[in-house]
Simulated assay, not measured.
Amino acid sequence: MASIRARYGKLNIDFRYLNMRCRETTALEDTPQNRKKLEKVIERMEAEILLGIFDYAKYFPKSTRLKDIKETENKVNAISSKTPMFSEYCDIWFQEKEIEWRNSYKGKIRTVIRKYLIPYFGTIPIINVKKSDILGFRTSLAKVTYGISQECLSPSRINQIMIVLRMILDSAAERYDFESCYKNIKNLKQTKVEVHPFSLEQVQLILQTVRDDFKPYYTIRFFTGMRTSEIDGLRWENVNLQRREIYVREALVNGQLGGTKTYGSNRTIQMSDRVFQAFLQQKSLNHGKSEFVFCNRSGDPLDYRLVNRRIWHPLLRFLRFKTRPAYQTRHTAATLWLSAGENPEWIARQLGHSTTEMLFRVYSRYVPNITRQDGSAFEAMLNKLNQEGVAS
């Protein structure tokens, strides 16, 4: 039974909730009228506690005990529902799923769980996560900032985090036989992938200016479209100079050699003559000191961060080119091939795409800017047809 006490002229409520003694101060002065008013409030509280619908924060929104009360409520709910806390289920889910993932992907999942999901959902029983919690979490992500510039998380990054949350909740719903609350929640709209390829003239200038020991490296990047992780993890055993083929089977991520980005990324790249010559030049520079095609002085694979900081970005500044990631060499290869009229299916295979869909969605809009022939081929066909009609 709750009791009313007075302290420093204000009325306090002394009651028990979840087997804990709770004492909360009100803003009411100690008067007979306020005591009667508070007695009615206590009646409602005790009824709600018995019914299991008591909301502590509703009655005492400024209480210093709200965090402890919430954690205790979650523990009690978890015991009654016989389902684990969100944080506990994350461990179960991760251990069961990690065998399906590559090491690089495991690291990404761990980061999402540790940095974003556990701090927000960790102490909530998995069965008690509500749709309102999910939407509130997504809203909170939009306010997260990072880096020196304090930029907010992009819609793309928020969607990546939400995908992990959805997988966890859907898995728990199936295991414990309850309906997943992650329904009708759509991904945030993402801006189109921005690519800023170099023109052929700019590529030539870069390759003429870059340090001699990095000419082969950037020549191969520009004319094969290999990803950074793929070229940095390329070993001589996957280079067939006799057949002029590159076998993309591995990728170097965070200093660890593993599988490629996707299974579809495993592919055979055909060498152009310029790429072939670059490999010959690199072989003379390497002198067999490492299993990796491109390595540092000690024979270890390149650290792309160091290469970007010491070679790539200083080179662009020197040439007064717009700053852009070295990954744009891949985009450049795609747009140059398209502008040259190469078969789109062949380009997709070179890049490791399973279909040409992404090729046209991301790169095709740059082709007219390179060829300067928007619609001219179609016009030429019509003119030819008209001329043939007149002649006949």
Rank of each mutant, 00 (worst) to 15 (best):
E201R: 10
Q202P: 06
Q202N: 08
V203G: 06
V203I: 14
V203T: 10
Q204W: 13
Q204S: 15
L205M: 15
L205W: 10
Q208A: 09
Q208L: 11
T209P: 05
T209W: 11
V210F: 12
V210R: 10
D212M: 02
D213T: 13
D213L: 11
D213Y: 15
F214P: 09
K215S: 06
P216D: 08
Y217N: 12
Y217K: 11
Y217L: 13
I220A: 11
R221P: 00
R221A: 13
R221N: 08
F222Y: 14
F222C: 09
F223G: 09
F223C: 13
T224Q: 07
G225A: 13
M226T: 03
M226I: 05
R227L: 08
R227N: 07
S229L: 00
E230C: 03
I231W: 02
I231F: 00
I231E: 02
I231Q: 10
D232K: 02
D232G: 07
G233I: 00
L234I: 09
L234M: 15
L234T: 06
L234Y: 09
R235L: 05
R235M: 12
R235N: 03
E237M: 13
E237A: 12
N238K: 01
N238I: 04
L241A: 05
L241Q: 09
Q242G: 10
Q242Y: 12
R243E: 15
E245I: 14
E245Y: 09
V248E: 00
V248L: 04
V248Y: 07
V248M: 08
R249H: 00
R249M: 12
A251G: 14
Q256R: 12
Q256W: 03
Q256A: 03
L257S: 07
G258P: 06
T260L: 02
T260R: 00
K261W: 02
